Simulated assay, not measured.
Amino acid sequence: MSESRFTDRVVVVTGGGSGIGAATVDRFGREGATVISVGRSEDKLKRAAAEAAAGSTVVPRVTDVSDEAAVNALIASVVEDFGRLDVLVNNAAIAVPGTVEQLDTASWRQVFDADVDGVFFASRAALPHLRRVGGCIVNVGSVSGLGADWGMAAYNSAKGAVVNLTNAMALDHARDGVRVNAVHPSLTRTSVASFVTDNAEMLGAFEERIAMGRAAEPSEVASVIAFLASEDASFVNGAHIPVDGGLRASSGQPRMF
């Protein structure tokens, strides 16, 4: 791992207080970036910042990404305080289970507010600043946006929207010098996924389907995010990288031999 790919770079990571977001904050910090870690819980943000690698520059900022005015103010303040913005990682998201029949309107809107509107608001605010420096956006989608799950209609729909929003931005802004890509994790060992990872039977069902036979670690997703944000990916635009241990390599049929 290069220790200096992001020296003098300013990176905003939404949902930075835990899980993939916290691992991404840590990864960019280790590689020399000034990282603005964004989330709704000040306690989580401060705890994650304290756990980042020694010598890292991590700045917690409490912001609800579904609040348009707050996101605009956040991006403006980052540029004012640090003089630039090089990378935006749209990671913040929530999930509410339920089929279309089971979901109420408030739950449907709550998921789209965080998972889709948050990406739109942050990207729109960031783009003028990213354009000035040839920066990039990395969206954290999900394999659940590339295909559906039982009982997750809102989350599947929202993450599916992130897939095509990534495509649209990759087309619209590439000639302005801004690359836009996405990573799509499968089961990852985070607190949000603990209802799976702490349930031996459910975890076993996932491990049976994932070719590598295990869940991802948050740091493994963060490393792909960092690659997409780096000059190592300078001609990668509009890409969707599953970080799924081979889950999507399957035809979907059960193991026969």
Rank of each mutant, 00 (worst) to 15 (best):
Ala154Lys: 09
Met1Lys: 15
Gly55Trp: 13
Gly151Ala: 10
Met212Ala: 08
Arg214Cys: 02
Arg248Asn: 05
Val65Ala: 09
Thr34Glu: 01
Gly204Pro: 01
Thr197Gln: 12
Phe206Val: 13
Ile137Glu: 03
Ala216Cys: 10
Gln102Met: 05
Ser56Thr: 14
Asp86Pro: 11
Leu45Gly: 04
Leu88Arg: 06
Ala148Asp: 00
Ala205Ser: 14
Asp81Pro: 11
His240Ile: 12
Val162Pro: 01
Val111Gln: 08
Thr190Arg: 11
Ala54Tyr: 06
Ala106Cys: 00
Asp149Ile: 04
Leu127Lys: 10
Asp81Lys: 15
Asn91Glu: 00
Thr7Gln: 15
Trp108Asp: 01
Ser186Ala: 15
Pro128Arg: 14
Ala193Leu: 11
Arg124Thr: 15
Gly21Val: 06
Leu127Thr: 10
Asp172Phe: 05
Asn237Ala: 05
Gly245Ala: 02
Glu42Ser: 14
Gly21Ile: 08
Asn156Leu: 05
Leu165Ser: 05
Val183Ala: 01
Arg248Pro: 00
Gln102Cys: 00
Asp43Tyr: 09
Ile75Gln: 06
Ser157Arg: 05
Val58His: 02
Ala54Phe: 07
Val58Cys: 07
Ala222Phe: 03
Asn164Leu: 12
Asp86Val: 14
Val58Asp: 00
Ser142Asn: 12
Ala122Glu: 02
Ala193Gln: 09
Gly160Phe: 02
Thr166Ser: 10
Asn90Arg: 06
Arg124Asn: 13
Gly134Tyr: 12
Asn156Phe: 04
Ser186Thr: 15
Val12Phe: 11
Glu80Phe: 01
Val71Asn: 02
Met152Gln: 15
Pro185Gly: 03
Asp149Leu: 14
Ala106Met: 11
Ala70Asn: 11
Ser223Asn: 10
